[in-house]
Design a protein around this nucleic acid. Structure first.
Lengths: 191, 191
DNA sequence: ATTTTTAGTTACACATGTGTCACTTTGGAT
DNA sequence: ATCCAAAGTGACACATGTGTAACTAAAAAT
């Protein structure tokens, strides 16, 4: 029943991603989003009560996809290979880090709906970090990683490094190759 | 002659820094700034034609200070010590990276005044990178750094890593210690 | 064909931010 | 004491964004 939709949720989230990365939370407007989708603003408000709900739903979807991808690392692989595949995945989802930063800025204004979605997000957040922490722990006990490095700093380091702005337009593969090298071995040569 | 000022340029830039880091370009408003300084918005407009001019002036000032600090690295020091002092300085000015990112978002709207200030900024930007590139080059020729690592990626890596969010509230010195370790040697132990 | 259901639009009221201008305040110079 | 120059304020016009409600459009069910 009913008329055909002019835009899919998929399109909507795709545009949302593009815009939120470009402009940040405060700069993001439903107006821009509507223009990109060739619909009126009100059409979007048919599906989301407000901007914040839309953004949170988008983030949850983004998180779901990332989570699915991250949870499929074979447990048996040797440490260095696991690290490699994981870094590759983090590299593919490099925007996630930026997106999750935005989540902290969204005001809930005491609305239970929004508060619930935020809680959901931070739960998934922890879920996402679990395999990473686990891997770091493995690395430490197998002697690959210095014991005294704090886990959260280490993870922060990885996420932060992964999103080095590729301003010079290097091709993605090369960028990943060098980034990985830097994360694993730092800037100094292993003498 | 004339009445005493209620706020100094120093205070103004201090508040500007705080706000721009918190809220980003789009979120930053003259209203917030005025409130923080206990003056009316109009008082601020006495000194700056508009928001963008204020922000650019702030950035130029910030850049000047950083530049002064960076240019005072003794040339004779051995490589590793130079790296250490430089990292320390970058760590102290870790906000600069974020601030410079904002500069790219400021619209000049064809105003020659703003365009001029922007050009000034990007000149200083290059000036700032010069000693860094120089150091990296030295490191490469002295065999400390892998030759094939692209310079800009390497610098991006350093700036990016320096601004790992210290969410767990580690004390600054410790945070710097571990961050340095990660930048220099990566996450893997040197076997 | 006409009714129902869902999608979308136009127009509105409201809120917040910008930049300006006529005005007041205040302190030193005369 | 009064004049004047710099500092600050309140109020306004304008622009942009939010969220809503009454409406129209179109596709499927009857």
């Amino acid at each position: 029943m009913g008329r055909d939709r002019k835009f899919s949720t998929f399109d909507l989230f795709l545009c949302t991603k593009k815009l939120i990365i470009q402009t940040g939370y405060e700069g993001f407007t439903i107006g821009q989003l509507a223009t990109q989708l060739n619909v009126s603003r009100a059409a979007i408000y048919k599906y989301y009560q407000n901007k914040d709900e839309l953004l949170l739903d988008f983030m949850i979807e983004e998180m779901k996809n990332t989570l699915k991808s991250f949870s499929s690392i074979p447990e048996e692989l040797p440490f260095l290979e696991k690290v490699n595949t994981l870094l590759q995945k983090i590299f593919m989802y490099k925007d996630l880090h930026l997106i999750l930063g935005i989540q902290e800025v969204i005001p809930t204004k005491g609305a239970p709906l929004l508060e619930g979605k935020k809680r959901h997000l931070s739960l998934m957040h922890r879920e996402l970090y679990k395999p990473l922490i686990h891997l770091v722990q493995q690395g430490k006990s197998e002697g690959y990683i210095e014991m005294d490095l704090p886990n959260d700093l280490l993870l922060g380091f990885i996420f932060q490094s992964i999103s080095i702005p590729n301003h010079s337009g290097m091709d993605t593969e090369k960028a990943f190759f060098y980034t990985k090298k830097l994360i694993l071995n730092g800037i100094l040569k292993n003498k």
